[in-house]
Simulated assay, not measured.
Amino acid sequence: MYKLLGDLRGYLKWQDITTDSMIFRMHNIFTTVLLLTFSLIITATQYVGNPIACIVESGLRKNAINTFCWITSTFTMPDAFNRQVGKEVAHPGIGNDFNDESARKYYTYYQWVCFVLFFQAIMCYVPQWLWNTWENGLMRSIVMGMNHQLCDEKEKLKKKSVMMNYIMKHRTTHISYVYRYYACEAICLLNILLQLYCMNRFFDGEFMGYGLRVLQYADKPQEERVDPMVYIFPRVTKCIFHKIGPSGSVQKHDSLCILPLNIVNEKTYIFIWFWYLILTVLLVGLLAYRAAIIFAPAIRPRLMHLAARGTSKETCRSVSRKTDLGDWWLLYCLGTNLDSIMYREILQELAKKLGDQNSQVVA
Rank of each mutant, 00 (worst) to 15 (best):
G95Q: 00
V89S: 02
H91I: 03
N132Y: 15
V48D: 10
I65N: 07
N50F: 08
D79Q: 05
M144S: 15
A64H: 06
C54G: 08
K105W: 06
N147H: 09
L60N: 04
Q120T: 01
S73Y: 11
D79W: 04
V56I: 14
A90W: 13
Q149I: 12
E135W: 13
P78W: 06
F98L: 14
N96G: 04
W131K: 13
W134E: 12
T76D: 14
D97W: 09
F118R: 04
I142G: 11
F75M: 14
M123I: 05
P51H: 05
P51R: 10
V116G: 04
L117K: 03
Q111L: 08
L138Y: 04
Q120G: 00
Q128Y: 12
L60S: 03
P92T: 11
C124Y: 00
V89D: 07
Y107D: 05
D79G: 02
F98D: 13
T133H: 10
D79H: 05
Y125D: 00
C124A: 03
R83L: 11
N63C: 08
M139E: 01
Q84T: 14
L138C: 04
V85C: 06
C151W: 07
D79V: 02
F115I: 14
N82W: 01
Y107L: 09
F68Q: 13
F118T: 13
N99W: 08
F75W: 15
W129L: 06
C54I: 09
L130H: 05
D79C: 01
C54V: 10
V113N: 08
N96R: 09
N50K: 15
I55N: 12
M146W: 01
P127A: 07
P51V: 09
L130M: 06
V85D: 02
E135A: 13
M123H: 00
E57G: 10
E57H: 03
G145E: 06
V126Y: 01
I71Q: 15
Y107N: 03
W131N: 11
M123G: 00
Q84S: 08
N136F: 10
K87N: 02
T108I: 09
I142W: 15
F68S: 11
T67R: 14
S73M: 13
D100P: 02
A90D: 13
Y106W: 14
N99G: 03
A90P: 01
V89T: 10
F115S: 15
K62L: 04
C69V: 13
P127M: 03
P127I: 03
C151E: 07
V126I: 12
I52L: 15
Y110R: 00
